[in-house]
Amino acid sequence: MTVHNIETVSQFKEAIASHKIVVLDAFAVWCGPCKAIAPQIAKWSESEEFKDIYFAKFDVDHLPELAQELGVRAMPTFVIFKDGNKETEVVGANPPALVAAFQKVKAE
């Protein structure tokens, strides 16, 4: 897998409809913590442990309507969906919290 770039709201809706678990990274190009966590997200997207998770990202400045719909107030915000429904979110570049959230949603 890789981290897929979401360019439109319809791409977002298709992603959560067609994948069991989706991790959506709401980022901004000017955001330092977003840049810092991006390589780790890419590694997780390639890992065996998280092979069942679809990793995607979108730029909040390019899709402000999606950021507003999801209630994104800080970057990065990671929103995790399962079966098309929002399960949880992690605000900030916090690798231990992200791994715990991924594992929890996978186990449910």
Rank of each mutant, 00 (worst) to 15 (best):
D83Q: 05
K20P: 05
C31W: 10
D61S: 13
A38H: 08
D83S: 14
E87Y: 10
A107I: 04
D52M: 00
T8F: 02
S47P: 12
A100V: 02
E7T: 00
E48R: 08
F102A: 00
A97L: 01
A17G: 04
E14Q: 04
Q68P: 04
V72T: 07
P76H: 12
V72G: 09
V90L: 04
F81T: 07
K82C: 03
N5R: 12
L98T: 03
S45Y: 07
V60R: 06
P95T: 00
L66F: 04
H4I: 07
W44T: 04
G92H: 01
A107Y: 07
L66Q: 07
P95Y: 06
A100P: 02
G92S: 05
F27Q: 13
D25W: 02
G92W: 10
T77F: 12
W30N: 07
F55E: 00
T8Q: 03
V23K: 06
T77V: 11
V79E: 07
P64M: 12
T88L: 12
D52Y: 02
V29W: 05
E7S: 10
K86A: 08
K106M: 02
V105L: 02
F78P: 01
D59F: 11
V3Q: 11
D52N: 15
E69F: 01
I6A: 14
P64V: 14
E14G: 02
I16A: 07
E46Y: 09
A38T: 14
Q68N: 12
L63N: 06
K13A: 03
E87P: 01
K20H: 12
Q68D: 13
F102D: 03
